[in-house]
């Protein structure tokens, strides 16, 4: 178990390294002076000279990468080209909005999709199964940015039920939550359908296993058989899927933040790209990747914790 954890952490570190290398080379592959690229065309010659010295732009590329890496490890991801603030503190201000969005989006999808899938699997062919079947396919088929736009048009512009823009007044929790509803709804909707289908399929498979028949032969209550036995096994592949699915969710969140003008990391990256604010882009991408790696690691550990066969093979 311990070696497994070490291995996984090592692997995660390697992936982060690779991303860093990619980001670094992105800046260096684009023709032109990296200092100007990094600081923007309006930067003063002093600023460019200062930047070149700090980033060791006169040294060989490899050395530059080592410095870059060293800075990143120490939490120094450079500075915002316009405000000169540290990239980390800019991200720190915004990451909360993104995390709240992503977790709420996935959260409601799991809370609705898993029970729907279960119910559909317990009575395959029933009206509930057929209705979820049709809706699921629909939800999966529509891209989340379209859902975002429709939701915005319908619920806030037309019906005026919910606010359209921003993340709410700081300190006003109710206002912040009401600003969270629409984007979270939009990015989670497809996942409701996806999870319902996935849980249904894996529940149906597990319900046919001999050990489910045994549980029934021992007279266990149907509710216990479904929730304590079948779902206990069927949820395992779903967890892996959710972990991997966070990648897609992050990109949906970027669109949602743009559409709803939510000041999260996604919106930040988008703005930074159009402003050619490279340090911010770098930092944003790095944080997003790190988050994804962390989620996948957590889902793998969760599987190991829930499945003794996996645990003992580690």
């Amino acid at each position: 178990m311990f070696t497994y954890l070490l291995k996984r952490l090592g692997l995660a570190a390697l992936v982060v390294m690779a991303v860093l290398l990619l980001l670094f080379s992105m800046l260096h592959m684009i023709p032109g002076n990296p200092a100007i690229l990094a600081l923007g065309t309006r930067a003063s010659p002093e600023a460019i000279a200062e930047y070149s010295a700090r980033m060791h732009l006169d040294k060989p590329v490899l050395t530059q990468f080592v410095y870059f890496l060293g800075n990143a490890v120490q939490g120094d991801l450079g500075q915002d080209v316009f405000s000169n603030r540290a990239v980390t503190s800019v991200i720190g201000e915004r990451i909360g909005f993104s995390l709240a969005l992503i977790c709420t989006g996935m959260g409601w999808a799991v809370l609705l999709g898993v029970p729907l899938g279960c119910l559909a699997a317990v009575r395959p062919g029933s009206w509930l199964d057929r209705v979820t079947g049709v809706f699921s396919v629909g939800m999966i088929a529509v891209p989340s940015f379209l859902v975002s736009i429709w939701a915005l048009l319908l619920f806030s512009l037309e019906l005026r039920w919910l606010p359209a823009i921003g993340a709410g007044e700081p300190g006003d929790l109710a206002d912040q939550l009401s600003h969270l509803v629409l984007p979270a709804f939009a990015i989670g909707l497809g996942w409701v359908g996806y999870l319902a289908r996935m849980v249904r399929a894996s529940m149906l498979e597990v319900m046919g296993e001999p050990y489910i028949r045994s549980a029934r032969a021992f007279g266990l209550k149907p509710r216990r058989v479904v929730l304590g036995y079948a779902l206990r096994v069927a949820i395992l592949p779903t967890i892996t899927l959710i972990g991997m699915g966070f990648g897609g969710l992050i990109s949906s969140a970027v669109f949602a933040e743009i559409i709803f003008a939510r000041p999260g990391v996604g919106k930040m990256i988008f703005d930074a790209v159009s402003d050619r604010n490279f340090p911010i882009v770098q930092g944003g991408v790095l944080v997003a990747t790190g988050f994804y790696i962390l989620v996948v690691l957590i889902s793998d550990l969760l599987i190991a914790w829930l499945d003794p066969r996996v645990r003992s093979s580690l």
């Binding site: 001999p210 045994s214 096994v233 066969r309």
Partner: peptide
């Protein structure tokens, strides 16, 4: 092997 649930002690 197949008639006992693998994830419960």
């Amino acid at each position: 092997m197949t008639s006992q649930i693998p994830v419960l002690p």
